[in-house]
Amino acid sequence: MIYPAAGSMLYMLLELITAFLFGGLLLGLHRKIIARIQGRPGPPIVQHLIHTFKFYIKELTIPETSSMPLYVAIVLALSAVWVLAFLVGPVLLGPFSIIIMCYAVHKVSEHGIGLASGSPYTKMGSTRAVLSATAEMPLIVAPALVFFKTHTLVLSDIINYQILHGSLFMDLPLAAIATFILLLSKTPFNPFGIVWGKDIVSGYKTEHFGVIRGVMMFGEILGFFVLLWCFLTIFFGGIFNTPLTIMLTMIGVTIILGFICALTPMIAPYHSVMIQWIFALLALINVLFI
């Protein structure tokens, strides 16, 4: 059997598909755990993937009020951004700054998805997306601390540093917690998910059905996978640096996230922003004992 060479396009494509399937299973597990904690049997673990594929054979309607071609393009941008982040991060171990950019563009896409349909619910969701852009604060703090500590932001160098000097979690625990909050705010049913809160129907996703929702879910699954991977690699790169250990820890972290999401209610918009700020400031305190 011939394996595709690392760095060739086929290899990257296969990795992409693997990550998508694995991420989908993780999110399914996440749902299952929430259901079990709440005393329900819950959907099977493959449900999230089935859900994504189901949308591919459903009728696509584009609202007459929507602003074309932005309505379609912005969803494609959302998934393209996470494809790029996946290729630069887990596959090529490239510069971390590109992943920061991808996260930022993800925020822009959320905002654009909400605005483009013209519905008041999606508009509300996108307004909250702007409001919750304060979640970018841990995003500036965590890389800054990592950079001051390791003097590099290239992921392969960060991993090498951690293999030599031990995991960064020991040095930057508060920054790791802030990044964990960032990760939490990207999982479904999380306490900070004011953007897709059920009080505004489905937030910015309200008007998106059919194929376009499928593409959106594809992007979100990849995004969850990439963020989880980045969190583990940057703060625990010294311990978990083989594919198997990373996959096992990802399952572990997903279980923790499931517990948090199941046990906490949705927080009001301003409180959500405030709590994220508090964690970012906590991470700043970490500067004192670098």
Partner: peptide, 23 residues
Amino acid sequence: APYINMMHLSSLMVFTRLIEILF
């Protein structure tokens, strides 16, 4: 929508570049 989205894009792009410059 398209024009408002540009504003959000601009502020986040400035932010991303700013991180690099500060480093």
